[in-house]
Amino acid sequence: MKFFFAVLRKIGYALLLLVAVLVLNFMLIHIAPGDPVDTLVGEMGGASPELIAKLRADYGLDRSLPEQLFTYIVNVAKGNLGMSFTYDQPVISLILDRLPATLLLVLSALVMAVLLGTFLGVVAAQKPRSPFSHFVTILSLAGYSAPVFWTGMMLLILLSYWVPLFPSFGMSDVGARESSMAYAVDVLRHLILPAVTLASIYLAVYSRLARASMMDVLGSDYIRTARSKGLSERVVVYKHALKNALLPVVTMAGLQFSQLIAGAVVVETVFSWPGMGQLAFESILRRDHTLLLGILFFSTVIVVVVNLLTDLTYRLLDPRIK
């Protein structure tokens, strides 16, 4: 029962957070000069003031800001995220269209960063002063400190321009009507560079974390016991120590999900990956308020849900957390 109420309270907070995100973002967006009609006029190569006024009225942009905000929130509460000014399509369908691409990118990067990072960290932890350990430290720090767009550009120049192994843009060869297997291979080919780029930042975090926590665990009593039983080093490390050393890594993975989505904006722009990040970036440039708010709303929902799940998992795993 107590658990049930705790969940209810969490959901209540989450809803409050969502409203706050909407209102705050709405205000932030309107600090930037201009509105979507300016962009339209730019694309048309100019327009008469009469047409501009008509467009503003059509889109309801001539009303006061509080009025616009109120209408927007009422619509969202009804489950209607509105129409995009740029594409003249419902925001929700644009987002759902792009969501799979972003999820694919973010999840691949996350899995790659966690698996590879943990592996490197664990190996490094076994011989903390070895050249390999130093190499891992340098590699992860370099990945962490290099701007993500720079990493992306360098990979493009290296593996797409000099050695044309991978395509330089997009998620698939549009129009290559092939079998679903061939399509999957095609997407994979397009996925590798952006996923590696996005993973490069987080690789550092996980390898450092895994290294530290592994060294910690390796020094504990039960490991000494295991060793004194005469178990091989491999069994000690991968069977006994790893499980415990993984806990902080898993925590971090849950927490960092939101940052990954933010990183995706940059990576998607560099690699022309047709995901939500690219859509968000463009909607800012075009002052497409409804689209941007919709994307922010959606990302907030995803992050809130992931955090809720992480929280609940803890409660189930570790009864000490109340």
Binding site: M153, L156, I157, S160, Y161, S168, F169, G170, T269, V270, F271, S272
Partner: peptide, 9 residues
């Protein structure tokens, strides 16, 4: 494709 380098490649 908005990115000029991607276009170039």
């Amino acid at each position: 494709i908005k990115d000029p380098s991607a276009n170039f490649i």
